[in-house]
Structures are given as structure tokens and as C-alpha cells.
Design a binder for these strands. Structure first.
Lengths: 201, 201
DNA sequence: TCCAACATGTAAGGAGTTACATGATTTC
DNA sequence: GAAATCATGTAACTCCTTACATGTTGGA
């Protein structure tokens, strides 16, 4: 019932691909969707229960000899309707992001230049790793088993979003690193004066 | 004491600019920092209390005749040390983002093309608004009162981040809208067949 | 006269993470 | 024999938002 938790829709969305277990839902959310969404088991399992209680999904329990139980969830027509209703709703633009690096830079003028530079360089490395991950996802999406899936163009679009913003971020990192280096020359003495206070020693 | 709440550092950061009230902290966080950070009063006031209790800040209460009380907080040297310690720490890369639009697109292949198109176009409009806001912030940062502030280059850098990623997003929106339109032609019949089921009617 | 801005706080509750608890099967 | 993967769930706790409660000053 509750407010604006989007977890139920992420789970419903995963199930809409094909029936699967809670463990599988987590897997889907971690791999292809992982670069822009995530859910923990602590969220997924209770939600699956709610979905069944609300008639949006059904469960089948598979028992292999001695194997752990496997609960396979299937979306009902009501579940599909509820998912599609939400998908068509305008995006809730209300949640503002929190970007820790930017916060650190914003208040980091008093730090020695190597420290802020390091922050930016580290971020650059992480973005490079992300870009590499996108490359892997792109290869996975070339698999012929999904070549004709009607979802594929949209999956590629979400990937493209990651690539374009990552590339922009890379450019920003280079620009900003350059800026900090340029700043260093004119602030050399100030940085030295302030170094001990700035690092709190 | 707690885990990884960054609220205390955001507040400490605001106070590090100059002594101010809780109301002012909110103001700072909403204006120049607003495009990449936010805090609610429900967080700010308790944190200010904690900061004083922990010796990281001090309070002065201003009483104008009949006016509401104004509590002005000042960072102590320990507060500055604690802030700088955190600022120099590598960014906690652990928090993955949640991008609602991408989630909707990812699972939205079954929707009529106008619906997904609308989602993308709406996003484009919002990004344009953001870019306009950045323009206003840029003008505010040209004010001569802060022209010599050593923080200014860093403030401009955070702004630049917003601009570069917003521009990349704009490009993505155009590309994706084009893609959806192209898709429509080949999926016309499928869209018509599935329209009633897709909208849940 | 009313509204916006200034100003401070608390309480309830929702959202989400992390750690815990448990155990089988498969692969190296 | 160990580690990774498959598999399900709960409990405690943190974080954060929202709503509530209250009151002043200044401008349109």
C-alpha cells in the first residue's frame, strides 16, 4: 500500500520477464540492471510474500530430492496490470541524488592539493571500471538467444545511458584534475601553511 | 558514532564556511549544493545537537527583542579536524544509484510506444530545467563578493559536473526518442495487439 | 490582511541495509 | 577438502522523510 517504494515494481519487473525465484530476482537485478538499480534480499523476500498476498503473483514450490526448496513466482494478470500502470506513470522526480565526491570537493578547498587530486583520480578509475563492465554487458546482449527479444532495444538504451554519462564524467575528471594542478602553483604556500591544520594533525 | 551517515559532514561542511543557524544550513544545502546534495530539517537539527555534545561545534543564542531565538553554530578545531579527516577519506563507492526512468524503460518493452516516448521526453524537459538552474548558479558564482574565495574553483567544478552530465543526458534522450520512434514502425501491429493488456485495461 | 520567509524542534513511521541462521550441491 | 553457488528467510537497526506544533517579522 505504502508510499513510494519502488521495490515492488523492480521485483514485479524481474518476474515479468519469466517466472523465477527470489534468488533469481536478485541475480537479474545485480547483473544487467545492476548499474542503475539494486535490491537486497531483505527487501525482496518480504515483497514476494506481499505480492502473493495481494494477488499480483503466485508461487510454486519445487522440491528436488533432498535439494533445498525453490519457490518459483509467476506474475498474475493483475500483477502485469499493476506493473504497467506504474511503468506508464511519470517518473517521480522527487528524489534528489547525493554525490559524495562533489560534496567533498565543494568543501575541500582547505585540503592539500594532492588530497583533492587523489579523490578525483580515484573516481576516474572507478568510472573506467564501470565502462569496462558496460562493455561486458554489451557483449552479453549480443547473444543470439535474446537477439529477437522485444526488450533488447530498451536494454541497450539503458546501457547507452551508462556509457554516455560515464564518458562525460571521464571528461570532467580530466578537466577537474587539470584545474586542481593549475591551482596548486598559485596556492603552493597556502597549501603548505595550511597542511597540518587541514589534515587535523 | 554510527555507520556511514554523511549528514554530519554535510552539516559540518556548511558550518565550515562561516557560523550559521540550522535554518541557514538548510538554505546552503538547498541552493548552491542543491543539485547534488540535500538534507531535511529532521536530520539537521538533531545533528547540530550531536555536534555540540561531541565538541565539534559550539552554539551561541541570539535574542533580538521579541524575535524568535536564533542558534548560531560555530565549528571547533576538533570539528574542522573531523571534517577534514572525512573529506580526505576515499569516497564510499558502495552506494549504487537508483534511476527510475531506466528501470521503467528496461521493463517497458510491452508498453505502447507513445508511453515510453513520453517518459523520455518528460525527462528531457526536466534536464533542460536543471541546465537552466545551473546557469543561474553560475551567474551567482560570478558575484564579486566571492570572486576571491578559495572555494570558488571547486564550486565551479561541481557545477561543471552537473552541466557535462546534463548535456550527455540530453544527447541520450534524443538518441533514445529516435530509437523508440524507429521501433514503432516495425512494432506497430504488436503495439496495437498488446495495447489493452499493456495498459491493464 | 494574508503570505512568504525566518526560525526551531519532535514524533511516527517507512525504507533499506546488514548481520545472522541454516543447509545442499557443485566445482576446483 | 574448501570454496563458490544455490537457496530462503528473519531481526535489528539505521537512515531519512513527512507531518505536526509553534511563533515572529516584514512586505504586498
Amino acid at each position: 500500500m505504502s508510499g513510494r517504494s519502488r521495490t515492488r515494481y523492480a521485483v514485479l519487473g524481474a518476474l515479468s520477464q519469466h517466472p523465477m525465484s527470489g534468488y533469481d530476482v536478485k541475480g537479474v537485478l545485480e547483473t544487467i540492471v545492476g548499474h542503475f538499480w539494486h535490491e537486497s534480499f531483505g527487501q525482496i523476500y518480504p515483497i514476494l510474500r506481499e505480492l502473493v498476498a495481494g494477488g499480483l503473483a503466485t508461487v510454486d514450490t519445487e522440491r528436488g530430492a533432498g535439494r533445498p526448496e525453490r519457490h518459483v513466482y509467476t506474475v498474475t494478470p493483475q500483477g502485469t496490470a499493476e506493473l504497467n500502470r506504474w511503468l506508464a506513470e511519470p517518473v517521480d522526480h522527487h528524489q534528489r541524488p547525493r554525490h559524495e565526491l562533489l560534496l567533498k570537493l565543494f568543501f575541500g578547498a582547505g585540503l592539500p592539493r594532492e588530497v583533492t587530486l587523489r579523490l578525483v583520480e580515484r573516481h576516474r578509475e572507478e568510472v573506467e571500471v564501470m565502462l569496462a563492465t558496460y562493455g561486458e554487458i554489451r557483449i552479453a546482449l549480443q547473444d543470439e538467444s535474446i537477439a529477437n527479444d522485444r526488450g533488447r532495444p530498451f536494454w541497450l538504451a539503458t546501457l547507452r545511458y551508462g556509457e554516455l554519462t560515464a564518458e562525460a564524467t571521464l571528461r570532467w575528471c580530466d578537466e577537474t584534475a587539470e584545474l586542481i594542478r593549475a591551482l596548486a602553483d598559485s596556492q603552493e604556500t597556502a597549501a603548505l601553511d595550511g597542511a597540518s591544520a587541514a589534515t587535523g594533525l
